[in-house]
């Protein structure tokens, strides 16, 4: 049977995946503490694996003398590096407070270290988006 105009309007105004409080909180928590967005939704194994992966990449990057970018680099590439680094959330702020990742590059793999730190942040952005999708009900 065809829907009436009132039913069509009601269907159009109701989103398929309504925005819940968890859908706002989970990505923020997941960004600040890698993997925590999944853990607070009881996806413990996924959360711990994400946490280990992002934290390990960040720490290995720092261990390889990787640079941690500041917000006011001036150069466009440094700004992009800052955006990537910022993805690690609390790890980034901790690194800035403690002055980690400021040493001069002493060997060739320091460039890899910088890449590890940036990619750790970018992967954490993906993990935070995934936590948002789980909270919305788009993903089991």
């Amino acid at each position: 049977m065809a829907k009436t105009s009132t039913e069509k309007a009601a269907t159009a105004s109701t989103p398929e995946y309504p925005l819940t409080k968890m859908a706002i909180i989970a990505p923020i928590v997941g960004w600040l503490i890698p993997g925590a967005g999944h853990i607070i939704q009881k996806r413990y194994v996924r959360g711990i694996l994400l946490m280990v992966s992002v934290v390990a990449m960040f720490l290995i990057g720092l261990g390889m003398n990787g640079r941690v970018y500041g917000p006011n680099g001036g150069d466009i590439l440094e700004m992009l590096g800052f955006v990537g680094d910022l993805g690690s959330g609390a790890l980034y702020f901790l690194a800035r407070i403690m002055g980690w990742g400021q040493a001069a590059a002493a060997h060739a793999t320091a460039d890899y270290g910088k890449t590890f730190v940036i990619v750790a942040g970018l992967l954490n952005f993906i993990a935070a988006a995934d936590a948002h999708h789980i909270a919305l009900g788009k993903k089991p």
Binding site: L50, I60, D130
Partner: peptide, 13 residues
């Protein structure tokens, strides 16, 4: 190591 950690995150997400 890069491949390992990136693959874990890609697989899960």
């Amino acid at each position: 190591l890069f491949a390992l950690f990136a693959s874990v995150v890609f697989g899960i997400t």
